[in-house]
Structure formats: structure tokens, C-alpha cells
């Protein structure tokens, strides 16, 4: 466990010593800050059934920028080390491949969580500026954060796998983006195809649809199915990535 924490610290340092992390964070803050301002404008014009939390965490243009995040965060994780040749040294050092994998995975995840913290700050600012007159539903806020974290876990695991498969960061980014997009489109496709299925089968269709998960969680309906789906998929992808790393180890 100690090895894992040492590696995690090293990975986090490498994240925050790189200007790329700050550029990504600043860009993400501009987009989410803009979404937040737009939400305030829209809700100021007329009352809506959609709360400020839904507008902030799930605006209409959410997927336009959300999918680009993960290739940016994960593309360098393994690909860069493979290119510079440091991955072989790392894997032949007295550390287990699983420690290397988990350290990289969690460092990316921690950075991803940090990306979302400004949204909480914005809500705090609104609460402060409006003297607490704006209703912020806490169940909705908790649900929104939970689904953002769950989807983040899954997408970062996809990014880890993509990065472990190639030594070229751009190729890793493209693989990651494609896999995430395919998963998203599969859910959308099932939703479109299943318009006329009976209610009892809608649960199965909704099971794979990211848009449904987000829309339910952001109103505050927490569902164990989505939690199991993303966590189990993350574990599966990390297992496959681990096998890829083990392959590199014995190949080396």
C-alpha cells in the first residue's frame, strides 16, 4: 500500500508540475463558468422546472466539452512513459504493475475531481451574492456530483487502457475519445430504438444510456444500477489494462 501512495504522490506531482494541467483546468473553468452564468440568465428570465444544479452540471452543451476532457487527462499516462522508455524501467523496478496502474488511474481521477470543484465554488458565490435566496436542492447536488464521479471513473479507465495500448499520445487520445463516444452513442441508439418497448424493458435500455443516468442523478434520483454499471466497467477495464502492462513486463 505504501508503494501505491509513493507512486500516487509522484504521479500527482508530475501532473501539477506540468503547465498542461493548469491550462486544462483554466479552460474547463471558463466553460463551466460560462455555463453557470448562462444558467443564471435563463433562470432569471422565467422560473423553470430545472434547478440551478441541473443547469450547472448538465447544460445542453455538456457533451460538447465533456468527452474532450478524458483524452486530455489520460493520453500521457502510459504512452509518454513508453515513448521515453521509462515504463520498462518502472515495470522492472520492485513495484507491482497493479500499483503503477492504480497510481496513474487515481492521480488522473483526483485531477478530474479537482476540475469539478470550481462548480461548487460558483454555487457558493451565488448563494453568497443572493443572500441565500436561490434554492439549491442538495439531493440534486449530491446526485449530480455522484454521477459525474462515476462517469469519470469509467472514462478515465477507458483512457488508461487507450494510453497503455500505444506509445503515441495522439493515438491514445483518439482511441480514448472514440471508445467514449461509441459507448455514449450505443446508449443513445438503444434509447432511440427502444421508443416503443414496454415499461418493464425500459430499465434494461436505460441501463446503458449515459444521458438517462445523468438526467436522473441530477434531479436527485440515485440508482444502484448506474453505480454498479460504472464501477464494474471501471474494474473490468482496469483488469484488461493490468493484463496489457503485465504483457509489457514479461515482454521486457
Amino acid at each position: 500500500m505504501r508503494t501505491l501512495f509513493i507512486l500516487l504522490g509522484k504521479e500527482l506531482r508530475s501532473f501539477f508540475f506540468s503547465p498542461v494541467a493548469y491550462v486544462v483546468l483554466a479552460l474547463f473553468m471558463v466553460i463551466s463558468g460560462f455555463s453557470f452564468s448562462q444558467a443564471i440568465t435563463l433562470m432569471g428570465e422565467k422560473p423553470t422546472e430545472t434547478s440551478i444544479v441541473q443547469w450547472t452540471f448538465y447544460p445542453r452543451w455538456f457533451f460538447f466539452y465533456f468527452f474532450f476532457l478524458f483524452p486530455l487527462i489520460t493520453m500521457r499516462l502510459f504512452a509518454e512513459e513508453q515513448k521515453t522508455g521509462t515504463l520498462e524501467s518502472l515495470l522492472t523496478a520492485p513495484v507491482r504493475a497493479v500499483h503503477v496502474l492504480l497510481a496513474k488511474f487515481f492521480s488522473a481521477f483526483i485531477f478530474y475531481v479537482i476540475l469539478w470543484i470550481p462548480n461548487l465554488v460558483y454555487l457558493g458565490i451565488l448563494h453568497w451574492v443572493s443572500d441565500g435566496r436561490v434554492l439549491i436542492p442538495l439531493g440534486s447536488l449530491g446526485g449530480a456530483f455522484l454521477i459525474i464521479l462515476l462517469i469519470g471513473l469509467f472514462h478515465i479507465a477507458v483512457g488508461c487502457l487507450a494510453s497503455a495500448l500505444t506509445r503515441n499520445q495522439i493515438v491514445a487520445a483518439i482511441i480514448c475519445f472514440t471508445l467514449i463516444l461509441l459507448h455514449f452513442l450505443l446508449g443513445m441508439f438503444l434509447l432511440l430504438m427502444a421508443k416503443d418497448v414496454p415499461v418493464e424493458y425500459m430499465g434494461i435500455v436505460n441501463y446503458f444510456a449515459t444521458t438517462q443516468h445523468i438526467s436522473y442523478f441530477t434531479i436527485g434520483l440515485i440508482d444502484s444500477r448506474a453505480i454498479v454499471y460504472y464501477v464494474s466497467f471501471t474494474v473490468l477495464l482496469l483488469t484488461i489494462t493490468h493484463q496489457v502492462l503485465e504483457y509489457r513486463r514479461w515482454k521486457a
Binding site: 436542492p137 446526485g143 430499465g203 436527485g220 440515485i222 440508482d223 444502484s224 444500477r225 454498479v228 464494474s232
Partner: peptide, 13 residues
């Protein structure tokens, strides 16, 4: 199993 045995927590407003 998750589809067959699930639970929902209604935290809507």
C-alpha cells in the same frame, strides 16, 4: 444481478 435487484434513493426536491 444489478438489473434484477436494484435500489433507488429518491433525493429529489
Amino acid at each position: 444481478l444489478s438489473i434484477r435487484h436494484f435500489r433507488q434513493w429518491d433525493k429529489t426536491y
